[in-house]
Simulated scan of single mutants.
Amino acid sequence: MKLIIGNKAYSSWSLRGWLAAKQSGLAFEEITVPLYDEGWDERKREEDLAPSSGKVPILWDGDAVIWDSLAIIEYLSDKVGRDRFWPKDEVARGMARSMCAEMHSGYLPLRRECPMNIRKTFEDVTISGETRQDAIRILQLWAEARSRFGKEGPYLFGTFSAADIMFAPVVTRFITYGFTLPGFAAAYAETMMGHRWMEEWFQAAGEEEWTIEKFETPAT
């Protein structure tokens, strides 16, 4: 397998796809395609990104081409066993799937106003009411998952799962933009940030040479 990803400092969907590949336990080749600079269009052609309309991440596995983070999670869970990615309890699994689907399609104000930049921390950022409502909704879901299904470990559903993969970039956003988190959420964020794969991703992001200027200052 090979996984094509964008800049680790900025690409939230790439982080999700990469964590999914790591969670699968399968060997994969990692290919980074720097996003949005003057060579972006040419690299899309060179790396044959046509099936995904130039989007990342993309997982290539033989003849299979999967170009959406949630689809990558589902493909890999089919390949290695769904219990590796999803809670075993069907009630917990139903909630985890719902949370992942909501994350996949929602929270547009948070995404727009707080793009991922894991090399930065901003102070005194003005957060809009819409984005604040997104954050409140996410914290409510985290609280319910932890209280109902998180007794067996420090992650949303106890053990590390697809839900943690999908919300990992949100954790980084909360830190980058200085959100004040309640105790349980701060503890969860600390757990996520201390995960060995997140530490590996952050280290690699710090070594990247590329900068995307539009993500280097808070959106206004």
Rank of each mutant, 00 (worst) to 15 (best):
E102C: 07
G106Q: 02
L108T: 12
P109N: 00
R111F: 00
R112N: 10
R112H: 14
P115D: 00
P115N: 07
M116V: 06
K120I: 07
E123H: 04
E123S: 04
D124E: 06
T126K: 14
S128N: 10
E130P: 02
R132W: 14
Q133T: 00
A135G: 06
I136V: 11
I138F: 07
Q140S: 09
E144H: 08
A145Y: 04
R146I: 11
R146G: 11
R148V: 08
R148S: 14
G153V: 11
Y155A: 08
L156Q: 12
G158W: 05
G158M: 04
T159F: 08
T159D: 02
A163H: 02
D164L: 09
I165V: 12
F167T: 05
A168K: 05
V170L: 04
T176R: 13
T176G: 02
T180F: 14
L181V: 13
A186E: 11
A187K: 00
Y188F: 05
E190V: 03
T191F: 07
M193V: 05
M193H: 01
R196W: 05
R196Q: 06
M198E: 04
E199C: 15
E199F: 10
E199L: 10
F202C: 05
A204K: 15
A204Q: 02
G206D: 09
E208F: 03
W210P: 08
I212P: 10
E213Y: 05
E216I: 10
P218F: 12
A219K: 14
A219L: 15
